[in-house]
Design a protein around this nucleic acid. Sequence first.
DNA 1: TATAATAAGAACAAATAGAGAACAAGGTTT
DNA 2: AAACCTTGTTCTCTATTTGTTCTTATTATA
Lengths: 211, 211
Amino acid sequence: MSDYQPLTRKQQEIYQFLVKHYQNSDNPPTLDEICSALGLRSRGSLHKHIQHLVDAKLVEPSNRKQRGIRLTTSENTPIIENSKNNTIPYLGKIAAGQPLEAIADYSKIMIPTQLKTENDCYVLQVTGDSMIDLGIFNNDWVIIEKRNYAKNGDVIVALINNDEVTLKIIEQTPSKTILIPANKSMQPMHFDPNNVQIQGILVGQMRSYIH
Amino acid sequence: MSDYQPLTRKQQEIYQFLVKHYQNSDNPPTLDEICSALGLRSRGSLHKHIQHLVDAKLVEPSNRKQRGIRLTTSENTPIIENSKNNTIPYLGKIAAGQPLEAIADYSKIMIPTQLKTENDCYVLQVTGDSMIDLGIFNNDWVIIEKRNYAKNGDVIVALINNDEVTLKIIEQTPSKTILIPANKSMQPMHFDPNNVQIQGILVGQMRSYIH
DNA sequence: TATAATAAGAACAAATAGAGAACAAGGTTT
DNA sequence: AAACCTTGTTCTCTATTTGTTCTTATTATA
């Protein structure tokens, strides 16, 4: 550990091959694969070089595991968080005058784990300025956790009169449901609780500045 | 996270077959169907491989259910985009009083393709209220494309006096560089162009409402 | 000449892969 | 309900692949 040894020519060559390999693949190569890529015929001699890379802490020791040759830095550690798990349905634009369930043919969008919960989530794209005071702008995406309840002050997706879908702050009393825009120039709207159905609550937001 | 095991060759082959299968059919395949598709003769050995996929959480356990082999996640929409490509470095909090290059040991965050460009990007977490009029709040994440130039009006990450890093709107003249907060209660700041270095421009923003 | 680097190949051990038998749980047919 | 079929599960045994450890030989370099 303290006896630092510079890499030899061959060790460099092998290390560079490994770095390159991981740019194209998450899978560690086998020794034989490295051999044939570098024109070697002996696994044995290759192994000794790799052992040096392990000593230099550039490669993690692969204890007899097949395909166990991995680079040490966090950068090259293959990330196999299952990208599938970070993918949730995109249900189109909000306030589009349609119940969400009606939208069948949706696509999927990958979402960072930080922006969603463990429960069922979906993505909507915001239309309009009713939430600008909360920093949610026209064309932003919002990540919504599917739910049919909320507490006062939550930002929710509401289905009004089985017709219009909207994103608002909710205040509920036994006799009334009030949907409050986060926009000083707009007025809260009062509804009969039976006419408002909660479709989910806000858990994340994203915006792209690229056009 | 260190107990990640790469899939073996055969496991990959089987997983890919399953993904492909679900593109054409809603019905999970039987073990025998997989066997004949892959040229195997023994259900027993196939089952062992599938068990590994279950352990890797790529496949849901099918407790003796016939045709019980399902990919994980609610839907079967297969996504095999390389998650590595959607992962960019997280460089910590902005306005942290340190040049970005100085930060060495960073982690990575997965970012939806919609929020980044083809070029080199990184993520910062915003501290402070200087951009609230643009809907960028305290603790939001911003995605920055690495660049050393910008045009007037762009939102940029600037390194001031080789010391402080900040997110502002830029206005450049030959003799002056002005950094303008998007916050009515704050004043633009004037600098000698030599003292301001552009480190990137804003391309995306994200916010989490979970706590 | 002496030393390090490189290479080949043999021999071994562990991981991986495959076949087939036997069994168990669910369906289906009668 | 009983008999039958299908299909998932478990098991043992064997084969192949692949990482590891050796020994030996060749070449480059100080």
